[in-house]
């Protein structure tokens, strides 16, 4: 494994977690949560846990799809948009928070935990089917979200007129 990858993924994980909590717009917040899920899945893959990584990926896709839909239904538009300086400050906060995690705890996981590789899990154990099903669900959910968003816009325009 390339040295430093775990540390970079960990910093990204905490920055995206901070952004998911602190960003005001629902869509950006959910996108940051999606990044958190995918980075977690990547971390699991690096830690030699391929099945858990694949399941995290699939579950993450499902959750994000549903969150996009419900976010579109539930969220009211915030009066003020999040400033880019605030976003940068939150990202910096995530970076600072990740410092103790990097310097005090992270080290490479032990060698060889399972007796099959990531490729085995994907192809021989058909885990790729689960991932593809998740992607199909995500595509459908994104399509529905876009349609709902357009309908909302049309309703607003009619209300204004």
């Amino acid at each position: 494994m390339i040295p430093g990858v775990l540390e970079i993924v960990s910093v990204g994980l905490l920055i995206s977690a901070c952004l998911a909590i602190f960003l005001d717009e629902a869509v950006y917040s959910v996108s940051a949560l999606a990044a958190t899920f995918f980075l977690t899945a990547f971390l699991y893959a690096l830690a030699d846990a391929p099945f858990v990584a694949i399941f995290q990926f699939a579950v993450g896709i499902g959750t994000i799809a549903v969150l996009f839909l419900s976010g579109e239904m539930l969220s009211e538009r915030p009066e003020t948009k999040t400033k880019s300086s605030t976003t940068l400050a939150v990202a910096g906060l995530g970076g600072v928070l990740s410092l103790p995690a990097i310097f005090f705890s992270i080290s490479s996981p032990n060698e060889v935990v399972t007796d099959f590789s990531f490729g085995d899990a994907l192809w021989n154990f058909s885990a790729v089917d689960v991932v593809l099903q998740g992607l199909v669900i995500l595509t459908v959910a994104l399509g529905i979200t876009i349609v709902l968003h357009k309908r909302k816009r049309i309703k607003k325009r009619r209300g204004v007129q």
């Binding site: 998911a20 909590i21 917040s29 977690t40 971390l43 830690a47 846990a49 969150l67 976010g71």
Partner: peptide, 23 residues
Amino acid sequence: LKIFISIELIATAATLNFVMLAS
């Protein structure tokens, strides 16, 4: 929605701890 996202983060943290210790 933010409260739900917070709960998701807590669940992810617990799972991360479990996976990494097991690994």
